[in-house]
Nucleic acid binder design. Sequence first.
DNA 1: ATTGTTGCAAACCATTTGCATACGT
DNA 2: ACGTATGCAAATGGTTTGCAACAAT
Lengths: 122, 122
Amino acid sequence: VAPKSVGQVRGALKLFGHFASAQELHKSMQNNGAKIGLTTVYRSLQTLADEKVVDVLRRLDGDALYRLCGESHHHHLVCKRCGRTVEIEGGAIEKWARAVESEYGFRDVDHTVELLGTCSRC
Amino acid sequence: VAPKSVGQVRGALKLFGHFASAQELHKSMQNNGAKIGLTTVYRSLQTLADEKVVDVLRRLDGDALYRLCGESHHHHLVCKRCGRTVEIEGGAIEKWARAVESEYGFRDVDHTVELLGTCSRC
DNA sequence: ATTGTTGCAAACCATTTGCATACGT
DNA sequence: ACGTATGCAAATGGTTTGCAACAAT
């Protein structure tokens, strides 16, 4: 029985379209007239992250960034300098992960992959 | 006129061999008998980062991780239940990372890969 | 009435900074 | 003595949590 605020936050993220920190998102929602507390924004983002509806990653300064993720599992290529982020199709990775999984007799293997570099503009 | 503590910290990082948070590194140094304050570890890591001799990235929980640049690295397959850890050769990953790098015009791309699953014994 | 939701204020915790002490030259 | 390096303790700031007021059924 998801609280309505979770839907509100998801909507705001959709509107935002790219990675936003909780505080940026909160400010943006208030600017659009929403009456919602910062705490609730945090809690909603937490819920969405648990439900794997949003991706979470960390900016270099330590702030958490959130963005709606599509249905397909993907990874990110992030610029160290400007924070520009590109979603990557990781077909090769998925195959590799499954190969490693069976090679070592593991089950239910999940993986985290992050690429960090410097983009062409920086 | 680099303080000696910077060298100490660099040495500890080398010993560590992979990404470590400031606090983990500090604890590890103290366990090895070093008399150094947490503040100094932070300051030394800051200096090393400014000099570009260490890479900095962020763990999902927000802690900063530091590693000497140019160290060859491997990846880990970790069991969620018993903590058993296997070191993985990531040749396929390295190739994939380089392909992504050139495809999107990024430079100096580093990557983090962690595999989490359940091992055969559990 | 009971259960779930909200938001304020306080707690948390990694990191940074102020400042007084200790060190090197 | 001078300038630098160090570490304690306090400040910072994003995030989390306790709790009491509040809405929904």
